[in-house]
Each structure stands twice: as C-alpha cells, then as structure tokens.
C-alpha cells in the first residue's frame, strides 16, 4: 500500500485537467489506496458551488467532486494563498476542505510516497 497525493492546478473547465485529476483521485480510492487531493492555483475554482457548464456544453464537474468524500477521498487540501489571490474564502466552497500555507504544503508533499501532478 502506498499513500497517494494528487495535485491539481487547473480550473474546472477549459481543459480536461480537473476532471482527469478527480478521476485519478477516485481511482486511487477505488483501489483501496490512501489518497488526498491538493488544489493549487486556479484549481480552487473547482470547489465553487453552482457551476453552470451546460452553457458551454460541458459536463458538471461538481457531481464528481461531491462524490470524493463518499469514496474515502476525505483529505482535500487547498492552498490558502491561491484562495486569497482569487478573493475566495473556505466557507464559499462546496466541500469541507483544509487550507494550508505554503510551508504546510511543502511539509504535506513530503509525507506522501506517490505524488502526481496532474
């Protein structure tokens, strides 16, 4: 068994990056590996409520995001500075997440054996 950390940096739409990062996190959980998700930069936007992707003919990422805790991806971390830069606060997000400063983020990354930057 290995501990996986999936790092996502992209906004929910504009590319498949966010979806494919989420799919990878879910796959780790489905295969019974301890897994956490770390959201940096524009990935903060993934957790905003009320996406309306149908206007750009995209599938809603929120449904998949909301299923993360159900599949035991219960550790979701978000970068404090990325949130602040975008005028977002923890209580504006649609999932319960832990915010970390940059020093905590580097300490966090060191504790995982498998780190995948998607």
């Amino acid at each position: 068994m290995k501990r996986f950390l999936i790092i996502s940096r992209q906004s929910p739409y504009g590319s498949a990056a966010a979806r494919e990062a989420t799919e990878l996190a879910l796959a780790c959980a489905l295969f019974d590996q301890p897994v956490a998700l770390l959201l940096l930069d524009d990935a903060c936007y993934q957790l905003l409520p009320e996406h309306q992707p149908e206007t750009i003919a995209q599938k809603n990422l929120s449904a998949m995001q909301q299923s993360l805790p159900l599949y035991d991806v219960d550790k979701i971390f978000v970068c404090q500075r990325s949130l602040a830069q975008r005028g977002l606060t923890l209580d504006s997000l649609s999932l319960a997440v832990t915010s970390l400063d940059t020093r905590q983020i580097s300490a966090l990354i060191r504790t995982y054996e498998m780190v995948i930057n998607v």
């Binding site: 068994m1 990056a17 990878l24 796959a27 780790c28 295969f31 780190v115 930057n117 998607v118």
Partner: peptide, 23 residues
Amino acid sequence: SGLGQLIAAATQSDRLVTFGGGG
C-alpha cells in the same frame, strides 16, 4: 486498460516518475 494499472504498478514500485502534466 484502466487507471487501476497505474495504481497497481505504483504500489509495486520504489519510484513513480511523472512527465508532463501540471498544466
């Protein structure tokens, strides 16, 4: 094949090295 093949291989490996991504 599926993503499970990546996870299974990673659990068997000393190192997982990624190329690309992050963008």
